[in-house]
Simulated assay, not measured.
Amino acid sequence: MSLNEKQVESGDLIPSLDRSTDEVAWDLYRKAIRFGTWDPAAIDLSQDKADFESLDPDLQGYLIHFCTGFLDAEENVALKFCPWIMLGSSTEQQAFLSTQLLEEFKHTEFFMRYFKEVFGKERIPGVKNIVQQKLDDRVKKMLAALEQGPGDREAALVEGLTHYQGIIEGVQAMTGYEVFEAVYGSKGLLPGLAEGFARIKEDEGRHVGFGLRMLKLFARNPVHAKRIRAVYDDYLPYILIRYDQPVVVNGKEYPTPPEVRGRERLTKMFERRLKDIFGKPAAV
């Protein structure tokens, strides 16, 4: 297990505050070059196909639904991430943020391949994820801020970091990894998907760690702290919808496996992220 994976497992995602943000950003950029070069096309999915075909139909249906959520999310972020890079305040920060754009496309490629080679289908209609859908408005606000003064640009970046690194990756994706492990990975199933998640999780450990570090620093400003908390609070009901919705694949509804415990896991991850940023347990 690499250092980044260990940090993700332990929850110790945030790089040291002892160095400047530009130094941290450049270090993460270099790490992305060295460690983020895995190839989605190189992961062996042959056992996954066999495992999938041998699964109980209910677990097959849930897996397709579950992976649809990841494919939709990865692709949506990949297509919309450029404003985060553009709002970076230095070359070092923009360099690191640019690695996230490439990595989101790699994650998208992995899930597109999984649907084709393991499920034998392209994809199913999207899973409801309002936090993702709200990226459309977020992008418009961030692009508009590029034409405004430094204060407006910073405010837009704070909200963008909260929305993407803080919530989409920091809460929703991190919870998803736990769900996969509980339902499938702990049973030794789907080793290709397990490897893909491990690689993606390592990439997103860099993303989330940098984003939380930025938010932790921004939260020292009471105006930004209020803004960060407002985004988290406003989005909490939408976060919880992710695992409350019916599991429907090709018009058929499937039960949610009891190991999922989505609302419980999401709430705990939500509280952890607020503690990361504000340094104390958060009342939800």
Rank of each mutant, 00 (worst) to 15 (best):
G170S: 11
S90D: 03
V223L: 09
D276Q: 09
L157E: 00
N221F: 12
D233T: 15
L13A: 04
E178K: 15
Q245D: 06
E23M: 13
D136N: 15
E169Y: 11
E74H: 13
E159M: 13
V223D: 09
Y114H: 03
L101C: 06
R123Q: 10
G211D: 03
R138N: 08
R273W: 04
R113D: 01
L13P: 03
L146W: 14
A145F: 02
I228P: 04
L236G: 07
D12E: 11
L157D: 02
S10G: 09
E181K: 10
E103H: 09
S46K: 09
A198T: 07
M1S: 09
Y29M: 05
S54Y: 00
K140G: 03
R265L: 11
G205Y: 06
A225Q: 03
D244P: 05
D233V: 14
M1V: 06
A282T: 05
L240W: 01
I43F: 06
L215M: 06
E92G: 07
F105G: 04
H65L: 06
R199M: 11
L55W: 00
L189V: 03
L266G: 03
F180A: 04
R265G: 01
G166D: 01
A42D: 14
E169D: 13
E181P: 06
L190K: 03
F119T: 03
F96H: 07
Y164N: 14
A41N: 13
F110T: 10
Q94A: 10
S46Y: 00
K128P: 02
F210I: 04
V208R: 12
G126Q: 10
D12Y: 08
F278D: 05
L189Q: 07
L274R: 15
V183Q: 04
E169V: 12
L71T: 05
F210H: 08
D234K: 15
E109G: 07
C82P: 05
G160R: 04
K268W: 10
M86P: 01
K49L: 00
E5F: 08
R34C: 05
D18N: 14
D72S: 13
R261V: 00
R229A: 15
L79G: 08
V223C: 02
K6V: 02
L236W: 07
I33N: 06
I43R: 02
G88P: 07
P15G: 12
A283K: 15
I130G: 03
R206D: 03
V247C: 10
I14G: 05
P125G: 11
W38F: 09
K134L: 11
S20N: 11
G192T: 10
D56Y: 02
V158L: 06
E92Y: 10
A219D: 04
N4C: 10
E195N: 08
D48R: 02
R138Q: 12
R123I: 00
K106Q: 14
F218C: 11
R265F: 02
V118F: 00
L63Q: 02
I168F: 11
L161T: 12
E103A: 10
Q133W: 12
